[in-house]
């Protein structure tokens, strides 16, 4: 029954995709009449005016261009013309670095805050104020103090990933069932061993949920950050192709951003399943 549901859901998905591509194709066909005008003027106006072709590419144009990109993902023709693989690798490396730094800070700090009611209360106002700040608002400050656009982007990722992880770790650690702590206490388990054998496994699902939220936010923010700092990365690629008026490349980039984001989420989901325990 479940497998048949799966098959049916798959069929519906494929049907929806085909319908979407079909509508897209029909909507972007050349329909307007070809206008006659002087060749100089036509050059200025571009294909949209002269051949009645929409600047919005159809699915076939995007498909062909995508195939071109997939054939040569790692070419490098100078600063403004790099393969999509290289651009994605830059973005993933920045997200990875900023995110990893955030993990290294947020989880131990969250542990401390969660285990100490005093720290928890003392730091709460700071966290409440810092958490809702858009990570991009930090960008000028980062650029001014760090004086390196690439490291600034990493800092922005760090600052946006840290809050969900920190808050989830604090919550997970603070809400470990009292009876499990009592078991460790009656067994005279020391603080360090208790932290690793009781609190960490008990809080792990909550911590991983925070990490999963963070990676999603980090991937959202990197595109915007790279549009600002420029140079490399998928966000820069999108902005660069917009300046080139290549909507086809923009659409391809959007598609790839979605796919990479989904993969990152799936990796964290897999880790979450590993540490989740049934009760």
């Amino acid at each position: 029954m479940t497998s048949s549901l799966r098959v049916r859901a798959g069929l519906v998905s494929v049907a929806l995709l085909i319908a979407f591509l079909g509508i897209w194709h029909l909507a972007t066909r050349s329909t307007a009449p070809v206008a006659t005008m002087s060749p100089e003027y036509a050059k200025l106006m571009g294909l949209t005016a002269t051949q009645g072709k929409s600047a919005m590419p159809g699915p076939l144009d995007v498909g062909a261009k995508l195939w071109e990109h997939l054939k040569r993902p790692f070419y490098d023709n100078g600063p403004n013309d790099k393969g999509l693989g290289i651009q994605l690798a830059y973005s993933i490396a920045r997200v990875g670095t900023g995110y990893l730094l955030a993990v290294l800070v947020a989880i131990p700090l969250g542990f401390l805050i969660g285990m100490s009611p005093l720290l928890s209360k003392a730091l709460d106002p700071f966290i409440q104020v810092l958490k809702p700040i858009s990570p991009l608002a930090w960008m000028p400050l980062a650029l001014y103090t760090i004086k390196d656009s690439s490291i600034s982007a990493i800092f922005v990722i760090f600052i946006c990933s840290i809050w969900p992880m920190l808050l989830n770790t604090v919550f997970g650690v603070a809400s470990v069932r009292k009876e499990w702590i009592n078991v460790a206490r009656t067994l005279e388990v020391g603080t360090v061993r208790r932290a690793f054998t009781v609190i960490l496994p008990a809080a792990a699902p909550t911590i991983l949920t925070g990490m999963r939220i963070s990676i999603g936010i980090a991937w959202l923010v990197i595109v915007a950050a790279e549009m600002l700092v420029g140079g490399t990365g998928i966000g820069y690629f999108v902005w660069n192709e917009w300046n080139n008026l290549s909507i086809t490349n923009v659409i391809i980039a959007i598609l790839l951003i979605g796919i990479v984001g989904m993969l990152l989420d799936q990796i964290l989901a897999r880790f979450t399943r590993l540490v989740t325990f049934p009760e």
Binding site: E179, V183, P201, A202, F277, P278
Partner: peptide, 10 residues
């Protein structure tokens, strides 16, 4: 011995 058995579920 706890009322709620208090076993570590993992």
């Amino acid at each position: 011995i706890f009322q709620s058995h208090a076993l570590l579920p993992w």
